[in-house]
Design a protein around this nucleic acid. Structure first.
Lengths: 114, 114
DNA sequence: TGATCACTTGATCATGTGCTCATATATAGA
DNA sequence: TCTATATATGAGCACATGATCAAGTGATCA
């Protein structure tokens, strides 16, 4: 790690920032964003924000193979972003968390203010 | 695309969801989240949420090579997430957008309610 | 101008990721 | 039980991505 000099330019500022960065669960946070950061998964979540949907309807509406959807749903499940319930042969998925709606709303705001 | 059947299970629901998904700038949204979804970039943004910092201090506080930081800052710049100003030999970066703080706060809320 | 420092950028490479294909599981109905 | 339908999952592969290394740019100062 080749720092600019032997001593920092702004030791106090760096110390304060380091405290904030080290205290926050950055890795978990980044991983959550990474999950949201894929077009297919984002579409899935956006669709589920309208209402719960079964896997095959999701696949159709996203024009993605059922297998691909299923793989992504598995990931979303692992991150507690969606829940599911079985009804006969169908499996219905829905958002597990209202934070997702808030995150999307805020993200859209950033995107739109070009 | 192998849909479950020739006809959808819930045509109306799918139509409504499709409208929402197609109307939103999903790709841009997902790309923004993807940018936030890397530990190094998340740390950079978190550090900058404390105060503006020069590149070498950022590199030091994150224990990442200065080149790596610079590459990531370039990306963050491209997505209008950080701004910079030159002061002599140093280049100071800061958050370009308050949405980032909001997004991080909401993301942390999701992560913490384990 | 030449040296040095702070930063940027291009090339390269190892790793990660998302899709497809094939196969497995689960449920319903004959 | 046998078949059909809906979903899940493992393997494999093409492509994206983040770090490093080396070289380039811009600014200060002797």
């Amino acid at each position: 790690m080749d720092t600019c000099a032997e001593t920092l330019v702004h030791p106090d500022a760096v110390a304060a920032a380091r405290r904030v960065v080290d205290d926050a669960p950055v890795d978990a946070l980044a991983e959550t964003f990474k999950v949201l950061g894929d077009p297919t998964r984002a579409r899935i979540l956006l669709a589920l924000s309208v209402r719960e949907l079964c896997v095959c309807d999701l696949a159709d509406l996203l024009s993605v193979s059922q297998s691909a959807v299923s793989h992504q749903l598995r990931l979303l499940r692992a991150h507690r972003l969606v829940r599911f319930r079985r009804e006969g042969k169908l499996v219905y998925y829905s958002l597990d968390d209202d934070h997702v709606r808030t995150l999307f709303a805020e993200g859209l705001r950033h995107v739109k203010e070009g």
